[in-house]
């Protein structure tokens, strides 16, 4: 393929905004909605997912030519499942408290479509370096989104942020925010905000282009 390669910086940054797995691609919503009852949980889940994503991307991009197409999904799943199990076990061993609050969602990283999606769409077609950059970008985007989501929910639902009380006692927590419904509400508002910003940018871009073409015509 003679296709021009995207600059490596863009490849990294795309996960943060343009192709943010949660806010743009709506991938991996199950853990996103389920575990983000606090900012710390968001960080934990994000880091665990990022770890799995980076390891799996690296491994799969290394061996991408050796795996026959017919069994690629099966192989990807085995690789991902292995790393997830490693995370699960090590987390239980080293961070028992975190492991407890993330509960069943660590093993479920296996079926997080974000990870399989990046293997299928990126790691199996790119070299290890680019794959790692992509995985780190995506993982970072995922982690940041989950942290923000968790922080908002924790703040309104529990008055605290990363475990420290931020709002005064007079503020009665909105329990709904740490209920599943609160996850949907917060995510909905985040998506709304992101879409608004994207829309405004597009409009601005169109306006600029139009202005440019008019100038050319006048000239």
């Amino acid at each position: 393929m003679a296709k021009k390669q995207t600059p490596i910086g863009t490849e990294f940054m795309k996960g943060l905004w343009d192709q943010n797995p949660v806010l743009k691609a709506l991938l991996g919503l199950c853990p996103t909605l389920a575990v983000t009852t606090s900012a710390m949980n968001g960080v934990g889940m994000g880091v665990a997912t990022t770890f799995v994503l980076v390891c799996a991307s690296l491994l799969i991009s290394l061996v991408r030519k050796a795996i026959p197409t017919q069994v690629r999904i099966a192989s990807f799943i085995v690789v991902i499942a292995t790393f997830v199990t490693i995370v699960d076990l090590e987390m239980k061993a080293l961070f028992p408290a975190m492991s407890k609050s993330l509960g069943a969602f660590i093993p479920l990283i296996v079926v997080n479509c974000l990870i399989l999606g990046r293997q299928e769409a990126f790691a199996s077609k790119n070299n290890p370096f680019r794959s790692i950059v992509d995985a780190v970008g995506m993982g970072l985007g995922f982690t940041l989104t989950l942290t923000v989501l968790g922080a908002v929910r924790e703040l309104l639902g529990n008055r605290t942020m990363f475990g420290f009380q931020v709002l005064p006692d007079a503020f009665e927590p909105w329990i709904v925010m740490i209920l599943p419904a609160g996850a949907f509400l917060t995510l909905g508002f985040m998506l709304g905000a992101v879409n608004t910003i994207t829309h405004r940018r597009e409009q601005a871009a169109i306006a600029t282009r139009r202005a440019a073409s008019l100038t050319v015509k006048e000239a």
């Binding site: 017919q70 499942a81 490693i86």
Partner: peptide, 27 residues
């Protein structure tokens, strides 16, 4: 295909047993 799956499976199993050896007592 068979070979790939077997290799992947064996590597995965091996890796997990190592991790388990380390993690199980801690857990």
């Amino acid at each position: 295909m068979l070979a790939t799956l077997i290799v992947v499976g064996m590597l995965s199993g091996g890796a997990l047993s190592l991790v388990n050896d380390h993690a199980a007592p801690l857990i």
